[in-house]
Write a protein that binds this DNA or RNA. Sequence first.
DNA 1: CAGTGTGAAGCGCTTCACAGCT
DNA 2: AGCTGTGAAGCGCTTCACACTG
Lengths: 211, 211
Amino acid sequence: MAHKIPHVPEATVARLTTYLRCLEQLEAQGVKTVCSRTIARLAGTNDAQFRKDLSYFGGIGTRGRGYSVERLQEHLRHILNLHRPRHLILIGVGNLGQALLGFPGFHRSPFHIVAAFDNDAKKVGTTVHGVRVRHIRSLARFVRSHPVHIAILAVPAAVAQSIADLVVRAGIPAILNFAPIHLQLPPEILVRQVDLTRELEVLSYVLGAER
Amino acid sequence: MAHKIPHVPEATVARLTTYLRCLEQLEAQGVKTVCSRTIARLAGTNDAQFRKDLSYFGGIGTRGRGYSVERLQEHLRHILNLHRPRHLILIGVGNLGQALLGFPGFHRSPFHIVAAFDNDAKKVGTTVHGVRVRHIRSLARFVRSHPVHIAILAVPAAVAQSIADLVVRAGIPAILNFAPIHLQLPPEILVRQVDLTRELEVLSYVLGAER
DNA sequence: CAGTGTGAAGCGCTTCACAGCT
DNA sequence: AGCTGTGAAGCGCTTCACACTG
């Protein structure tokens, strides 16, 4: 290993993914080289922030020139472990769950949704966007024979905690939770929260009473 | 006005919405009074943080006792301007857009989705989850006769910027963007980003190369 | 005495500014 | 000269600790 990686702020990791989106866009436009100012503007930040974000992982640019779009992309993919295939399952095949099964980002390499689960007998056995729906009872058994990295929770808030407990007992290390509640979980489990209600309420606050 | 409100960190506003979810849960369980430690644990933070978050807006608790679940809820709703009705529109009636039209949180008071827009002639004129789909061409005209507070963008990344420009020209002050790109917008426009790809990639980073 | 409200200290992310390559 | 990489300064959020109150 060329570089010992120090603690990296979570905000930095989030920005790295944004830089990757910008680079994909630039590459599609045929751009070969880019400087920190350009990419930072595209990503909605400033050049110092961009360079500091990269500096945690060691130099990759060329002084006086900038960054190779191709090399920097590869570098970021490597940092984010995007070379490693990840198996996902989705739990809760309602409105939102069905849409997520069709969401291209969840099928794009290295992410693969390998199964969906629901407790509704009418849905079990069907196939939604190419993904087989199984009964939630069969979750633990399924995970025993198919390693799963991330569980996507698209279930109602009222049952989210008990489903999350099930997921943890099955040995899945990470959860992407769409239910609008904070899950109580052991500290070694990774959780990311996507809360649409929260986003609306934050906008409501910032809009204020007048607008 | 009883209290001059200083600058409030965005992280605080986000937590206020979480506290509100916890209070709704507690009220459903018949709890009348709660102390900062209890609610903070439910929300995934600590008691000092909770009290500091509230302190920006002036005292509401009772020393030695805690907080009235009902009063605190009302207080938070007031702070977040949730007494004020908000009209939303959704742009992009694809997979995700259709699911969002059915998402209960987007219909729950004070939020109302009043119209949806798409450029696909096959979708225009249909009704999805009770919401009429109109042609994107008619956006500006619609907004002129129906004030809109928030536009939800559920369009492909490639067209998100041009649709956002359209939204801004129509005079809509806030955007909830689901496309995985950073929008370039005038500073007075409020934006919240919901980026599912980002969430997966952050999990991929934290999972590391081993797990 | 239990629990709130808050100034002040602590700490971590962001920004600055410049040395060092090309 | 142009632009990167980075120690150090700046700044804002979080945590502490305690005066205060019911």
